[in-house]
Nucleic acid binder design. Structure first.
Length: 284
DNA sequence: AGCTGTACCTGCAGGC
DNA sequence: TGCCTGCAGGTACAGC
């Protein structure tokens, strides 16, 4: 579930909390998650926070960058100065702070801390040179264009015409489009009235345009609601997002379609992922 | 080359 | 109550 809107929500808060602050110490409890030398990070100040699709980049003033992928259950929780609402910590903050699911702690100036929690330990934090970010980081290197940035409808049309894979699988392929995951892919397809398993190359020009628009629409909605906290997602201030209460198709199995009111949402697996579709609105 | 299926992990919901 | 199974979904990679 941490997709573009979720990671963007994290980015916006980290900018508020971290920029200009010094990282005194990096406490690594799990060396599989923190990959790099703490000496390249300790004693530096945070310059800026950037986002590339679902990945965060914390730029330091010594020319290094911390690249962070929170995958499914990673959480970046900030405690300390700048935090205006210290009592908003959601129950979803796994195991509290500094418990068995806390794998890395950035000790900041003025007694502030940034905790990296991750129940399933799929996420990672890598240290890389800022200037070589796009060549050194294997993940960022492969990213396709992303919505609201460099994803044009011309590229989208071209790219889709080159593959026969199911459209939903392509939407979630980070090397084709950066930032879209399962929740927003399901919703965008429903909004555009496109069948998730339709072959990408067989989409009509009309469908391509509608889908392009729908992708931006659902992501914008995700941003508006601060992301989806279906599983473990929380923002650095410890609060939950609200998009899970506003999904269009995702999680609607068995419910009557809100648009056509003719059929119920069906769930099946596509590319190993839960896929929700309305048989009436999104015909094959 | 392009694509599919499975591994990586753990917690939790649901069935019996 | 408690055990067991399956499911959650982002990526990496083995294998077809």
């Amino acid at each position: 579930m941490p997709e573009l809107p979720e990671v963007e929500s994290v980015k916006l808060q980290l900018q508020k909390y971290l920029v200009g602050h010094k990282i005194d110490k990096v406490e690594v409890r799990n060396s599989r998650i923190f990959q790099g030398d703490v000496k390249d990070v300790e004693g530096t100040k945070v310059k800026d926070i950037r986002r590339f699709a679902k990945v965060l980049a914390i730029d330091l003033d010594n020319g290094n960058t911390l690249v962070i992928h929170i995958k499914l259950t990673g959480q970046l929780i900030y405690r300390g100065i700048n935090l205006k609402k210290p009592d908003t910590l959601s129950k979803k903050v796994t195991d509290g702070l500094g418990g068995k699911h806390t794998h890395v702690i950035l000790h900041l100036d003025r007694n502030s801390k940034l905790f990296y929690n991750d129940v399933r330990r799929f996420g990672w934090i890598k240290v890389t040179q800022s200037s070589k970010l796009k060549v050194q980081n294997e993940f960022i290197k492969k990213l396709g264009p992303e919505p609201f940035k460099d994803l044009t409808v011309e590229y989208f049309r071209q790219m889709l015409s080159k593959t026969k894979r199911a459209i939903k699988v392509v939407l979630m392929d980070q090397s084709k489009i950066g930032g879209v995951g399962n929740i927003y892919a399901n919703d965008a397809l429903w909004l555009a009235k496109v069948n998730p398993k339709k072959s990408s190359s067989e989409l009509s020009d009309e469908e391509i345009k509608k889908l392009y628009k729908a992708i931006h629409e659902v992501l914008k909605n995700g941003l508006k609601y601060g992301g989806a906290s279906e599983l473990a997602f929380v923002t650095p201030d410890g609060a939950e997002g609200k998009y899970q209460d506003h999904t269009l198709a995702y999680g609607h199995e068995g419910q009557l379609c809100s648009r056509c009111k003719k059929a119920k949402f069906t769930k099946y697996f596509l590319g190993g992922r839960g896929t929700y579709w309305c048989p009436a609105c999104q015909p094959a």
